[in-house]
C-alpha cells in the first residue's frame, strides 16, 4: 500500500551543522494500518512525514504509494493520495473563507479545478451531513467564516477535510498537540472513529506516549533518524508506558513524551 524504502535525508550537507534527520528508514504499511510514531525532539518524525508528503525531497530512497513512485513528485501532484493535518490548527483551513468553501476545496483534492460553481446545492447537503457527525453544531454554520471557529473546531474541520475524499494515506503530524487536553482528547477520539470507519491507512506522529500506545495497530519509535522499536498486533495491545520507559528510558529524555 505505502512503501518507504531506505529513506535518507541530510540537512545542511557538507557544513559543520550537518544533520542526518532521517537515516535509512524503511517502512511498509498495509491497507488499513494505523501506525503511531513517537520519538523525542529531533528524532526525525516530522521530516519523515515531510518526505512522504513531498514538502521536502529525500537524498536517497523511495516513496511508493499505491504502486506509484512519488519520491520526487511535488507536493501538489501527490495530493490526490494524501490527507495531512498539521499541529497548528490554523494551517489546515483558509480562515478568510467559509466552512462550506473550505470543505468544497477539500472535496476536489487532487482533481482539476474548473470554472464551475465552487459550492453546489447537492454537495452542500453532503457537507451538512458530514459536519453533523462532528457533533459541534457546525452544520448550521456553513456560511460562517472559519476565522470565527475555535482551535478545536478548526482542527476537527481540518480532520474532516483531510478525510473527505478518502485519501490512500492519512498523515497526522502531532495534530492534537496545540489543543487544550480536553479538546485534544475529543479530536483524537474523532480521529480514531473516522479512521476506523473508513479503514484509512494512517500514520500519526505524536509526542504523547499514552496516545501512541492507545491508538493504532502498530507503533514505531524513532531515535536519531532510525527506527528503534517497531511493535504491532497483540504485542502492541499489551504494551504499557512503563515497559517502554524501562526499555528506552535513556533515549526518551524528553519529558513531554511521558506526559
Amino acid at each position: 500500500m505505502v512503501k518507504v524504502e531506505n529513506l535518507r535525508k541530510v540537512f545542511k550537507k557538507g557544513t559543520i551543522d550537518e544533520k542526518v534527520a532521517v537515516d535509512g528508514i524503511s517502512l511498509h504499511c498495509r491497507k488499513g494500518d494505523f501506525i503511531t510514531i513517537i520519538g523525542s525532539n529531533g528524532a526525525g518524525k516530522t521530516t519523515l512525514l515531510n518526505l512522504i508528503a513531498g514538502t521536502c525531497f529525500p537524498d536517497e530512497g523511495e516513496v511508493v504509494i499505491d504502486g506509484t513512485r512519488v519520491t520526487h513528485l511535488p507536493e501538489h501532484k501527490r495530493a490526490k493520495y494524501l490527507g495531512r493535518i498539521f499541529q497548528d490548527p490554523l494551517m489546515g483551513t483558509a480562515s478568510s473563507m467559509t466552512i462550506e468553501e473550505n470543505l468544497s476545496m477539500a472535496d476536489l483534492r487532487g482533481q482539476l479545478r474548473t470554472l464551475r460553481w465552487g459550492v453546489t446545492k447537492s454537495r452542500r447537503e453532503f457537507y451538512k451531513q458530514v459536519l453533523k457527525e462532528l457533533e459541534l453544531g457546525l452544520e448550521t454554520r456553513l456560511k460562517d467564516s472559519v476565522s470565527l471557529l475555535s482551535g478545536g473546531q478548526r482542527q476537527s474541520l481540518t480532520l474532516l477535510m483531510a478525510t473527505l475524499s478518502l485519501p490512500k494515506l492519512l498523515l497526522l503530524d502531532e495534530h492534537t498537540a496545540a489543543l487544550d487536553p480536553k479538546t485534544a482528547q475529543k479530536v483524537i477520539e474523532l480521529t480514531d472513529k473516522i479512521v476506523r470507519e473508513h479503514n484509512l491507512t494512517t500514520i500519526m506522529v505524536t509526542h504523547n506516549m499514552h496516545q501512541a500506545i492507545r491508538y493504532g495497530n502498530r507503533m514505531i519509535m524513532l531515535h536519531e533518524g532510525k527506527i528503534q522499536f517497531d511493535v504491532e498486533g497483540e504485542e502492541k495491545k499489551t504494551l504499557t508506558v512503563d515497559e517502554v520507559v524501562r526499555r528506552f528510558g535513556a533515549e526518551l529524555k524528553d519529558e513531554a513524551l511521558l506526559g
Binding site: A53, E75, H76, K77, A79, K80, L82, R84, F86, L90, M91, G92, T93, A94, S95, S96, M97, E101, S104, M105, A106, L108, R109, G110, Q111, R113, T114, L115, R116, W117, G118, V119, M161
Partner: peptide, 25 residues
C-alpha cells in the same frame, strides 16, 4: 466563487493548505 476562484483565494490565505489539496499555487 468558482472552483478556480476558491483555489486562488486559498493561495493568498493559506498557501501550504491548498497545495496539500493539490493546487499548484
Amino acid at each position: 466563487h468558482t472552483q478556480v476562484g476558491f483555489a486562488m483565494r486559498a493561495t493568498g490565505d493559506n498557501e501550504q493548505m491548498i497545495r496539500t489539496l493539490g493546487v499548484d499555487t
